[in-house]
Amino acid sequence: MSNVVMITGASGGIGAGTARAVAAAGSPVLLVDHRADGIERLAAELRADGRQALAYPADVTNEAAVQGAVAAVVEEWGSIHALVNCAATMISRSLTETTLEDWTRVLGVNATGTFLTCKHVVRALVAQDTGGVILNVSSISGRVGLPNQPAYCASKGAVLQLSRQIAADYARHDIRCNVVSPGSVRTEQLRSYLAAQADPAAAERVLVDAHPLRRIADVAEISAVIVFLLSPQASFITGADVPVDGGYTAV
């Protein structure tokens, strides 16, 4: 795997894990995140390991910033082949306690950010006439309802349906678009969620017990599936939603 990949939400969690896995597979990577310090450190880490990596601080809800990121990929490496959308935010509140500001923020990052990055990367791929791959990270929250996550569930459902639409529209350009829907994963976001609970240990047990495999995933287990879906071995897979959820949505 040596194609150029743009990864959003790359400063931590699944985004950073995917960046490491994609770079290890031989692909140059553009790291996009609004947290500049995180992606600068990761880019330096990857370059020190002999990989090609460039950090591009950007807010995915800002269309001009997204256009700038795609232009930076093309300027640095001459083309782009793949996009991995990991940028996301979550606010845990009941429907009646969720404010309009909460809703707008979560939908803005998770749904609008995915729309904007897909829009401009697909535009570049069509112009190149080389085909390519879009991989959007959704969640079990896009498949089932979860307590106190109205905005997050809605946003991840939007990611899933947008991805299917892209797959249907752009297959004729040899552009594949797929979704990975993780269950609970040991990330900074999960740690923050557990820390905010009255009894973090009890809250973690609830999460563990909800997955038939009776554990929480490591980031590497998600990034391995993403790398496969980006690869030529997945060349006949498009419009798919791949649950990497320890069996959560099977029961």
Rank of each mutant, 00 (worst) to 15 (best):
G17A: 07
K119F: 06
L42I: 12
R186P: 12
I80E: 13
V227G: 10
A44Q: 04
V29K: 01
V227M: 04
A24Y: 01
E75A: 15
L125Y: 12
V251L: 09
R205F: 05
S231C: 12
E188Q: 10
V70R: 06
V126L: 09
A24T: 05
E188I: 04
G78L: 11
T238A: 02
S235K: 12
V73D: 15
V242L: 14
S231E: 12
I7F: 00
V179M: 13
S141R: 00
R47P: 02
A198E: 05
P182M: 08
A167K: 10
G239E: 06
T96Q: 14
D199K: 00
V179D: 08
A82M: 01
A240W: 03
E75V: 11
S27E: 08
A36G: 07
L230K: 04
V60E: 01
M90N: 15
Q165A: 03
S2I: 02
Y248F: 09
V179A: 14
P57Q: 00
A217Q: 09
V74M: 12
E188D: 14
D209R: 04
G13V: 11
G239R: 09
S235A: 12
A65E: 09
L146I: 09
A220S: 05
E63C: 03
S163G: 11
W103N: 06
G247M: 02
T18F: 14
A24H: 04
A43G: 07
Q52N: 13
I175F: 01
Q128I: 12
Q67V: 13
T98Y: 08
N85V: 09
S2Y: 03
N178W: 02
V185N: 12
G132I: 14
S163T: 15
A154P: 05
P212S: 04
V22R: 08
V244Y: 02
T96F: 10
N62F: 05
S163F: 07
L95A: 01
E188F: 02
E221L: 06
N85H: 13
I91S: 14
V159F: 02
L194I: 01
D49F: 12
V242D: 06
V144P: 00
G145N: 03
G38Q: 11
C177G: 09
T99K: 15
F228R: 04
A88P: 10
S2L: 06
A158Q: 10
V106C: 13
E45G: 00
A167C: 04
Q197G: 08
Q197S: 07
L229Y: 06
E45V: 00
G9Q: 06
N178H: 09
P147H: 12
A154M: 08
Q149W: 09
V208W: 03
H81F: 08
Y193W: 01
D59Q: 03
W77K: 03
R143I: 12
R105H: 15
P147C: 13
W103A: 09
V29T: 04
Y248S: 08
F115V: 05
A87P: 07
L30G: 10
I226V: 15
K119Y: 08
V227E: 08
D241M: 07
L229R: 01
D209M: 04
T112D: 06
S181H: 04
R172I: 05
L100Q: 14
V179P: 07
F228P: 07
L30P: 14
D59P: 03
